[in-house]
Amino acid sequence: MSPTDLLLIGLAGIWAGFINTVVGSGTLITFPVLLALGVPPVVANVSNTIGLAPGSFAGAWAMRPELKGQRSRILRLGPLALVGGIVGAVLLLRLPAEAFAAIVPVLIGLGCLLVVLQPVLSRRVAARRERLGEPVAGSPGGPRWLGAGVLATGVYGGYFGAAQGVLLLGLLGIGLDEPLPRINALKNVLAMLVNAVAGVVFILVSHVNWPVAVVIAVGAVLGSQLGARVGRRLPPTVYRVVIVTVGVVAIVNLLR
């Protein structure tokens, strides 16, 4: 990696950390950049997951005021996210690299679709709550299916992770009667747990491009702080367009 390459990766890490804190889908920024610079897909995914984990922690820490009163939810849903992250990481390492190369374009396409549909999903959730006139969830911890959804999202996040945050926002928004900032803060904690445990698995048993991982980590931590401070003030359409554009470029590169 040349200094210019590492600079590009660092900038992508900043943007990914910013987006992950506000919405999710930062992987759709960093992963295509790594592919464009010649990093093999599986190594890129492993190094990217490890690099984004510190940014996830920093983002969750920066939003701790919104986490007040959610300890019981974290204790209930957190272990499920951890188990899912381990399963997803093991699947990534067990399945052949050819399978990852074939699956990733589909996952990126799904991630782009989720990013585009997120506003529609949010409006439908809000409309449903208004019609009911009462909390959607039957308990503060949410309905039983929410745990299964968090587990499945953890598997997805451990395997690849693009749009993991968007998936969690959708699930938590439907299952919990909370304002978006508190749901987003909980999402950051769950995504952090998935990235952290998957990163540990990768460090123990897989090849990691450490210069790439370290540069992404530094950028992601910086970006997460920006996201926590000013992300909600920016028009969501701006970064949504960027994510989808980069995702389409990634799909094209993978299908060549």
Rank of each mutant, 00 (worst) to 15 (best):
V200D: 05
G173M: 07
P140N: 10
L132R: 11
L186N: 09
Q118E: 15
A36E: 13
A217F: 05
L190N: 06
G149V: 15
F18P: 12
P236N: 12
N195M: 06
A44W: 04
G138S: 12
F18W: 07
P143A: 15
L107P: 15
L190D: 10
A53R: 03
L169S: 06
A101S: 13
L95M: 14
G13Y: 02
L226H: 10
R76C: 11
L168S: 08
S56Y: 11
S2F: 05
P135Q: 07
I74E: 09
L52V: 02
W15H: 12
P79C: 13
Y239P: 06
T4D: 10
A97R: 06
A162T: 00
R73E: 14
P135D: 09
F202P: 07
V46Q: 06
L7K: 01
A102N: 15
A12L: 07
L34H: 08
P235V: 10
N195A: 04
N209S: 12
G26N: 00
L190Q: 07
A191G: 14
V189I: 10
A185R: 01
G69D: 12
A163V: 06
T4E: 10
L6Y: 03
V125S: 15
K187C: 08
A16S: 00
V252W: 03
P143C: 13
L222N: 10
I108D: 08
V83N: 14
G165Y: 00
Y156S: 10
G170C: 08
P65W: 07
K68Y: 09
S72E: 13
V201D: 13
A102T: 14
V205T: 13
T27K: 02
L37A: 03
G84Y: 00
V215S: 01
V83C: 15
A99C: 03
G141Q: 15
E66K: 05
E98G: 14
G17R: 00
I74N: 06
V83G: 15
L176G: 11
P235Q: 05
V244Q: 01
A12W: 01
G133P: 15
A97T: 12
P54M: 01
V201Y: 10
V205E: 12
G149K: 03
D5T: 13
G84Q: 00
V120W: 14
L82Q: 08
